[in-house]
Amino acid sequence: MKSLMGILWLLLCTGSQAADYYPSRSQWLEKAPAEVGMDGQSLQRAVDFALANEYSGSRDLRVAILEGFKAEPFHQLLGPVKKRGGPAGMIVKDGFIVAQWGDLERVDMTFSVTKSYLSSVAGLAVDQGLIADVDDKVADYVWDGTFDGEHNSRVSWHMLLNQSSDWSGELFGIRDWADRPPKEGGLDDWKHRRLNAPGTVMEYNDVRVNLLAYSLLQVFRQPLPQVLKQQIMDPIGASVTWRWQGYEHAWVSLDGLNMQSVTGGGHSGGGMFVSTLDQARFGLMVLREGRWRDRQILSKDWLHRAIQPSQPNPSYGYMWWLNQGSKKWSQVEDESLFYAAGFGGNFIVIDRTQDLMILTRWLEPSQIGEMVSLVKDSL
């Protein structure tokens, strides 16, 4: 629905390619696919595909989480969990909504898409000089013993961001080896495993991601949800309904104040709880290289770094997945695409070449490549 103000804005910008469209705080304008050079019938096939391929796990996410991570020893729910809704999503071209489905205002968990929010908070710290260099050792900033020892003292911010730190220890009662342990071996093998040299092997591990959140809390000396709200979500016009949660016992004292250390995912509960519309605003900010209207929220330099293939895993940057390497979608040739991904089929797919964003909630995860291919076919 186009408001009078929205129509006036469009008239002012007619004929100018310099002014990108950004939604207002209260409204996001729509366009027919043909108006932005897309085929409506092809696009509808992508929407129908998303609706027909809902994530197969239970809508009671307590059940889905415990089933999905039952191989982890001692796994339990430690933070908030919320029952999910049905499939939902948006396709945004040139800033305008060209397709949508499901309840866009419903707040749902988004699991490891939270990691990409966390990466952005790390970017704020670098942009503002709170972290001088990503290659700095984290022990130079966090000196409470978390990074003591010959092995852990070698861990840098760069390694935490691309998940190659191989940090070894316990954070809020969870051992690093208990998170997504190898399929072979048992407790004794995992406890006494041979450590990898920091920076050489990428391992998807939420304990170490939560360690990044804990370390950034020490740097900002302010709860990360406040940092995210004040410096990203409020400036992009997000609602007040989203929440960033941590484990119920993950509290630390800083400057005489108790602060919760949040998680970078939700497989033990917690993480970002956010509506599709708010998540799309975050994605549009990233699509536009960190800019929102006349404000540079995140530097282009940071977002460029965030999507560089890491040496340990060419499919991964700074908590953004890349359509390259072993994780490349067989259905999509374009290797410039990058995306955030979370348990249960939560995705933000960014295509800067086409000024295109695909955002899906509760799509069967194995079907994301086909979904993206269908949308690309509509161009």
Rank of each mutant, 00 (worst) to 15 (best):
M1T: 14
K2R: 15
W9L: 08
L11W: 08
S16Y: 11
E30I: 02
A34C: 06
G37S: 01
G57S: 13
R59L: 09
I65W: 00
P80E: 09
K82E: 00
R84Q: 12
P87D: 01
A88K: 08
E105N: 06
R106Y: 02
M109Q: 11
V113G: 10
T114A: 05
S116R: 10
Y117M: 13
L118T: 15
S119Q: 06
A132Y: 11
A132N: 11
K137F: 06
D140L: 10
V142Y: 07
T146Y: 03
S153T: 07
S153P: 04
H158I: 04
M159Y: 10
N162R: 01
Q163C: 11
S164Y: 10
E170F: 03
L171K: 06
P182L: 13
G185L: 14
D189W: 03
R193G: 12
Y204H: 12
N210C: 10
L211M: 09
R221N: 01
D234S: 14
W244I: 12
Q245M: 12
Q245P: 00
S261H: 05
G264K: 02
V286F: 04
L287N: 10
G290E: 05
Q296M: 03
S299Y: 02
I307L: 04
Y316V: 08
M319G: 04
Q324E: 13
Q324H: 15
K327N: 12
S330I: 09
Q331S: 14
E333W: 09
E333S: 15
F347M: 10
T353R: 11
W362A: 09
M371R: 04
M371T: 10
V372K: 01
D377A: 13
